[in-house]
């Protein structure tokens, strides 16, 4: 059967569709952090910037208003940065 929710991408980094998210919410994963940990939604290079508001809207639509949602955690770094660039930022220390 055609299901348009299977074609709506919510998390581009991890390739999760609206149908995937709805299914998890129905199974009882009811906060951003719980959804993130089970599906990796929001754990990709965009740091959840795209999917977070979309997931919040889905949680709202099952009766959890955004104001009552447990806020998800933002973790550093705020933009992906290479290990080489970080290491170069503090050169001169030898670790062999």
């Amino acid at each position: 059967m055609y299901d348009k929710d299977r074609e709506i991408i919510i998390c581009r980094c991890e390739d999760l569709t609206l149908a995937d998210i709805k299914e998890l919410i129905n199974k009882g994963y009811r906060s951003l952090d719980e959804l993130r940990r089970i599906s990796r939604c929001g754990m990709g290079p965009c740091q959840g910037r795209t999917c977070r508001p979309l997931v919040q809207r889905e949680l709202q639509s099952v009766g959890i208003p955004v104001k009552d949602q447990i806020p998800g955690i933002f973790r550093p770094p705020s933009k992906p940065i290479t290990l080489g660039a970080i290491a170069r930022g503090s050169e001169g220390v030898h670790h062999a």
């Binding site: 754990m43 990709g44 290079p45 740091q47 973790r75 550093p76 770094p77 992906p80 940065i81 290479t82 290990l83 080489g84 970080i86 290491a87 930022g89 503090s90 220390v93 670790h95 062999a96």
Partner: peptide, 24 residues
């Protein structure tokens, strides 16, 4: 983050081009 990056790029050099997305 700094110490990790220094040590790991010494131990496993090709990792220098890979981007960190999260620390905790």
């Amino acid at each position: 983050l700094e110490e990790m990056a220094q040590k790991v790029t010494w131990l496993l050099p090709p990792l220098k081009d890979i981007r960190v997305v999260r620390q905790w």
